[in-house]
Each structure stands twice: as structure tokens, then as C-alpha cells.
């Protein structure tokens, strides 16, 4: 039997040291909503679990230059009660809050949602659309990376041995900006996304889209950032033609699989639908 140990360091330095010393045999525990399931199912057999919730900066939400820095261990329930983030990045908050039940929300973290590496992670497309940047601490100090550069494949990330995601910076955004995230699931709750679409955009005074980011989840081995999708919106008033272009761009980008949660055909079609619908919600939010 494996001799598992549990550590709950009070500082990031300590956590990084433990993680690096374990040479890949340790797992970071934030909310545990994925980790403990994998442990229970015997999918992972780590030698050490490092609980990072006692590290203050990982559980903090701070305003920073008009934007927000959100600790990687902040739970969905806590973020959902944060008025500043709700006003600034409603799409990010709603995406995070879609993960699991109320009970899961009490624990699940954005850092975990990202680092679990699931293509279907709900928070990730919204974070990518928001152009969020994460801080990563490791044996060689700190670095920053765009959220879209973290997941490299199902269950795979670009984090090096000993690295921990510390927080996410959601930047200040121009006036008349809005974001939204929609996902499709067979039920109304408790499912993994079959398709997810996150969109962030900015409008000028005439209602013309001047900037946009479009991200999809669950339709490829990683979340996708769609340049064509953004191009379809920028310069338009999100009229019918732009929506059709967005729909087509979303469908064209998909490289999904057929599995127990949905078919290739279904995912492709619904990706276009959700992209359009999310764009319209983001537009309404931008218009205030």
C-alpha cells in the first residue's frame, strides 16, 4: 500500500519546495472536487497531497489597476458573492458558477478547473475570452502566462515540475465591454459541458464591435481561442451576417470526438449555436 502523506503549507515557498521535492509524486489539493474523485477511483496514486488553501494569497481577491486578481484556490461560492468581479467580468463568474452543484461550488477552484486539464472545464473558455493571465510560482521563482497557454491536452498542462498556479489577473476593460459564457449539457445541472462558448467583446458608441475574444470548450483536445470568431464580430454590430460568420467560424474550428456526452456532429453544430447566443448576451451586457 502506498504511504500517502498530507501537507498543508502556510506559504507558497513551502508549497513549491514540497512539490518540487516530490518529483511528480505529489498532487496539489485546492477544492479537491476532481482530485479526490481521481484518488477514490484509483486513477492516481500520489505519495503526497499538498493542500494549498492555507496559503493566504491563493484565497484572496484583490482589485488591481481597475481589474481583479483572483487567487487560484478561491471557490466558486466566494467568487459568486464578489460584487466587483460580478460587475466587471460576469461571464467569468457565471462560467465558474456553472461548475457542478452548490456543494461543488463550495470547494471548486478556478486553478483546479484549469490545471485538471479537462477540455470541458467550464471556467477556462471564459478566462481565455477574458484574456486572463495567471501567475505561476515554481522552484525558479514566478512567471506569468496566458490562460490559453496552460492546457496542452486532456489532463496535460505546460506547468513544469514544482509549479503552482497562484492567481489569475482579469484586466481592467474599456467602457462598453461585456462577456458571457454558455455551455450545453443534457440536463439543467450536474453535467460536464458537451460544448462551451465564452465571448468577451467591446463596443464603440455606435454599437460597433471594436474588440472581441471568442473561446470554445469541449470541442477539441484543449480549449480553443478563435481568431476567425473574433474577426467575424469585430467591425460589425453583431447583425445577422456577423452571427452567421461567427457560427461558421465556431463550427470550422471544432475538432471534437464522439463520446458518452455527445457526438461529433452534435458538438460542431451546437458550438456555432452557443457562440452566437453568448455573443448576443455579451453584447447586451456591453450596452449596459
Amino acid at each position: 500500500m502506498n504511504a500517502l502523506t498530507y501537507e498543508s503549507p502556510g506559504s507558497l515557498d513551502e508549497a513549491v519546495k514540497l512539490l518540487a521535492a516530490a518529483k511528480g509524486n505529489a498532487k496539489v489539493l485546492a477544492g479537491g472536487t476532481d482530485l479526490l474523485v481521481q484518488l477514490r477511483m484509483g486513477m492516481i496514486k500520489p505519495a503526497m497531497i499538498i493542500d494549498i488553501k492555507k496559503i493566504p494569497e491563493l484565497t484572496a481577491i484583490n482589485e488591481e489597476n481597475g481589474g481583479y486578481r483572483v487567487g487560484a484556490s478561491v471557490s466558486g461560492a466566494v467568487l459568486g458573492e464578489h460584487d466587483g468581479m460580478k460587475a466587471a467580468w460576469p461571464g467569468v463568474v457565471e462560467a465558474f458558477e456553472l461548475i457542478g452543484s452548490t456543494q461543488i461550488q463550495g470547494r471548486a477552484s478556478m486553478g483546479g478547473n484549469l490545471c485538471n486539464g479537462s477540455p470541458a472545464a467550464d471556467a477556462v473558455p471564459a478566462m481565455i475570452a477574458a484574456d486572463a493571465v495567471c501567475t505561476i510560482a515554481g522552484p525558479n521563482g514566478r512567471r506569468e502566462a496566458k490562460v490559453e497557454d496552460i492546457v496542452t491536452g486532456p489532463g496535460q498542462t505546460s506547468l513544469a515540475n514544482g509549479e503552482i498556479v497562484v492567481d489569475f489577473l482579469f484586466p481592467a476593460r474599456p467602457a462598453r465591454s461585456g462577456d458571457a459564457y454558455l455551455r450545453f449539457i443534457p440536463r439543467t445541472e450536474m453535467d460536464i459541458a458537451v460544448v462551451g462558448a465564452g465571448i468577451s467583446l467591446t463596443l464603440d458608441d455606435a454599437g460597433v464591435c471594436t474588440d472581441a475574444r471568442v473561446a470554445l470548450g469541449a470541442v477539441a483536445p484543449t480549449q480553443l481561442l478563435l481568431q476567425d470568431g473574433a474577426a467575424a464580430l469585430i467591425g460589425s454590430k453583431l447583425d445577422g451576417a456577423a452571427m452567421e460568420k461567427l457560427d461558421a467560424a465556431a463550427r470550422a474550428a471544432c475538432r471534437p470526438i464522439t463520446d458518452k456526452r455527445g457526438t461529433i456532429e452534435y458538438r460542431i453544430k451546437v458550438a456555432g449555436v452557443l457562440a452566437r447566443r453568448a455573443a448576443k448576451i455579451a453584447q447586451q451586457r456591453a450596452e449596459g
Binding site: L29, G31, G32, L36, V37, D51, S75, A77, R107
Partner: peptide
């Protein structure tokens, strides 16, 4: 906070 005790050590 409401949690599932099966998902907590």
C-alpha cells in the same frame, strides 16, 4: 459553505 463531505479529506 455547503460541501460534499466525500470530496473533502
Amino acid at each position: 459553505r455547503l460541501v460534499c463531505s466525500c470530496l473533502m479529506l
